[in-house]
Amino acid sequence: MALVATNGIRLEVHEHGTGPAVLLLHGFPGTSYSWRHQIGPLADAGYRAVAVDLRGYGASDRPEAAYHDSSVIEADLIGVLDALGIERAHVVGQDFGSMYAWNLAQQHPDRVRSVLGTVPHGGEPGPVAPSVGFAAVAARHFLHLHYFQEQGLAERDLGGPHLAEFLRRLIWALSAGGDLLSVFGHPSAGTSYLDALPPTPPLPWSWLAQDELDTITSSFAAGGPGRELAGGLQAYRAADADWALARQRAGTPIGQPSLLVMGEHDPVRSFAPPDLEQQRTWLTGLQDVVLVPQAGHFVQQEQPAAFNDVLLRWLSR
């Protein structure tokens, strides 16, 4: 691991192996540790695995900011590739990392060989800013997207002594065994995200041990009081800025070979179902949509063998 200077900050980067580079981009809640089951197999298969703690996460810098739009992340990542002497990389993203992967491929096609995401491409932006839609939904029931917009609220409710419980509940809710959609059954007024998330079964789960959850929790706690969730909250609070950016960039398709790999039980499928032909409107190089059985939102962690098989077969093309 190493701290790499890029775009005015330092990002922690974990590298293993030699050969064609595979840039691994995590989401929320996650860090480079989210790819612990992929780094070794990629290296063994003859690839250079590069997993990054994005700004605001893990051991990377956490600049004070209300938000950062995805163009900032793109500049961070191009700086990492430059610093490591990587001309072109295969890019693999999970959750927010998928959005960054799609955007990097669109805006820097000369640096991206292929792109794999676990969340569908968002398509052309609509005429209304996301925060307006979030508020309308939150008038009916709890919506985490709206809840995260208020500065200081989630920091108070979910950080400090609440951090470990929040992460455990959120990770379970997003998994194949959880029920994230149940949070929408709560009213918005007076409800924190921790209140809305259901309790979890005791650890270990079939795919996550206590020591692994402890490692994840420690990586967030490293930010210090009020900064534990900085990376994720800044990303959520960039919704309107990312929408405006997407409107400027509309009409530029992503032509590199691409693949969408989702957990069969990923709750994202409930409100963003992947339609192959529709996705090909924006991902003109899209080869397929693969659903991994018995996996939820953390497909590469919940079913690592199945995910790695898909990933390595994809890269070998």
Rank of each mutant, 00 (worst) to 15 (best):
M1N: 07
M1D: 07
M1I: 01
V4P: 06
N7S: 07
N7D: 12
G8T: 13
G8W: 07
H16N: 05
G17I: 08
P20G: 13
A21W: 09
S32R: 01
Y33V: 00
L42G: 12
L42Q: 12
L42S: 13
A49Q: 10
A51M: 08
G58T: 01
A59F: 05
R62W: 01
H68C: 06
H68W: 09
E74Y: 00
L81K: 07
A83E: 14
I86W: 12
Q94T: 10
A101I: 09
S114W: 13
P120W: 00
P125N: 02
P127C: 10
P127V: 03
P130L: 01
H146A: 08
F148G: 01
E155A: 11
P161T: 03
P161W: 01
E165D: 14
F166S: 02
L167M: 02
L167A: 00
R168M: 01
R169C: 04
L170V: 12
S175A: 14
A176P: 04
G177V: 10
G178A: 11
Y193M: 11
T200R: 10
P204G: 03
D211P: 04
P225K: 06
R237W: 03
R237M: 03
W243E: 11
P253D: 07
G255L: 04
H265W: 13
H265E: 15
P267D: 12
V268T: 15
R280D: 14
D288N: 15
V290I: 15
Q294P: 09
A305V: 14
A305E: 15
N308Y: 13
D309P: 06
L311C: 11
